[in-house]
């Protein structure tokens, strides 16, 4: 794993996100500096996941821009982000180590595999097929992939939800370490965000405000 720091910052300008006929977020503007964390709050269906997908470049915003400066242009967003969604991208039939090895090989970080498995506490499960992992272990797998990809901007969709208390401590430690390196953490949360304190963005309030100012 590279020890070098990150210098990317995320800036979102006038972002409007639409799903079907429903406007989830309108005119959203915020910046996240290197080393900062941002916790996204809001009730279910308020657009947290869609916002994360837009930040990753997976969802096309109706209007506005997402820029990761210190990096490349908007259409290269994906190369700067590591994304932990509610889908863990695990195949049931293949051993854990082989699957993680694939992502590590793509990122050129295969050497960091043993250390990463230890970090997330999956060393003993390395040879098990992905299908037998529990929900918490699947999330640990996703965190291991996040570490192996080693991207500056981490987008996490309720990362702590399936984790036990030890897993949440691990997650908190990982986020703190990432931010200490200058990395950015943007995470959807329902309770206390893991790791050190971070700013909060309440999507319900943003949507409310945009509705009140709309003509």
């Amino acid at each position: 794993m590279k020890a070098s720091g990150f210098t990317c910052s995320v800036s979102v300008a006038d972002l409007t996100l639409v799903r079907g006929w429903r406007t989830l977020v309108a005119g959203l503007t915020f910046d996240v500096a290197p080393g900062a964390g941002l916790a996204l709050r809001g009730p279910n269906g308020s657009g947290k996941t869609t916002l994360l997908r837009a930040l990753a470049g997976l969802h096309e915003p109706r209007a506005g821009t997402v820029r990761i400066s210190g990096g490349r242009a908007a259409d290269d967003l994906g190369q700067h982000v590591g994304f932990v969604s509610h889908l863990d991208a695990i195949k049931p039939g293949q051993p854990v180590a082989a699957q993680l090895g694939f992502w590590a090989a793509l990122a050129g970080s295969a050497a960091a595999m043993p250390e990463t498995l230890d970090l997330v506490g999956l060393r003993r499960q390395a040879d098990l097929p992905g299908g037998v992992l529990s929900a918490g272990q699947r999330r640990r797998f996703a965190l291991a992939r996040l570490l192996l990809l080693d991207r500056p901007v981490w987008l996490l969709d309720e990362p702590a939800a399936p984790l036990d208390s030890a897993g949440r401590d691990i997650l908190g430690g990982l986020l703190d370490r990432h931010r200490a390196r200058g990395g950015i953490v943007i995470t959807a949360v329902h309770d206390r965000p893991p790791g050190g304190a971070m700013d909060t963005l309440d999507l319900a309030a943003v949507t409310q405000a945009s509705r009140e100012t709309a003509p």
Partner: peptide
């Protein structure tokens, strides 16, 4: 379909390929 359902496709889209 399998990659789309389990989120693998999302992760592949985020690769520099």
């Amino acid at each position: 379909q399998a990659d789309l359902e389990d989120g693998t496709l999302d992760q592949l889209v985020l690769q520099p390929v």
